[in-house]
């Protein structure tokens, strides 16, 4: 690679990719609900993006491209981590941590932190977090990040019909979770 090529890569990286970092971090945080995991995920996504920057077409949708890289990194990490069930009873977590040697149970510490953060977070964040990751992802991409169905379909590698049905179910589940809270704040949904 010549110096000029590296300069070009750096320029694209700085001007087109780095401005997306807040949105990317927000997405990563709502996928993992753990600041360290979100940091790792964003860093991994950016380093991969830099490595494969030649496949990015300048002036196209940098945000969607980065989100796709991050989503793939998340799925790979998630698969590695979830040999065990994703949800465990709190008592079970405490018992595991009372064992003399907990080196084999490192993934449980994330879960305990997730449970703690869930208790401390606000109602909406809790409700979104309670959605299964496949529903949470489409909701975040559409309602928080403002991606269109077609963009979400490309980011997640699923048909547009799947995006629409997941979004429909995610919103309905969220409405159920939030019904009482929303009504108490003056937002109403009387459809039942």
């Amino acid at each position: 690679m010549t110096v000029m090529e590296k300069n070009t890569k750096d320029k694209i990286f700085e001007e087109e990719l780095m401005p997306q970092i807040d949105a990317l971090y927000n997405f990563a945080y709502h996928l993992t609900y753990n600041e360290e995991d979100a940091n790792d995920l964003v860093q991994e996504a950016y380093l991969k993006a830099y490595r494969f920057i030649a496949s990015y077409e300048v002036g196209t949708n940098a945000k969607a491209w980065l989100f796709k890289i991050l989503k793939n990194a998340f799925i790979n990490n998630y698969r590695k981590k979830t040999k065990q069930p994703t949800r465990v009873d709190y008592e079970e977590v405490v018992n595991y941590h009372n064992e003399e040697d907990d080196t084999n149970y490192s993934s449980y510490s994330d879960m305990r932190e997730e449970i703690f953060q869930g208790m401390m977070g606000d109602e909406v964040t809790n409700a979104v977090n309670s959605l299964d990751v496949s529903f949470r992802t489409v909701l975040l991409l559409c309602d928080v990040e403002g991606f269109k169905y077609e963009e979400i379909s490309k980011i997640l590698d699923v048909p547009i019909g799947t995006v629409r049905s997941r979004l429909h179910r995610a919103r309905n589940m969220l409405k159920e979770h939030l019904k009482e809270y929303a009504e108490s704040k003056g937002f109403t949904d009387k459809r039942g």
């Binding site: 971090y25 927000n26 964003v42």
Partner: peptide, 20 residues
Amino acid sequence: KNPEFRIRKKVSPNLVQSIK
């Protein structure tokens, strides 16, 4: 003619610097 609910973390400067 006949008179829809749409629900924020910021990245740390350390992470930005680390990536750069």
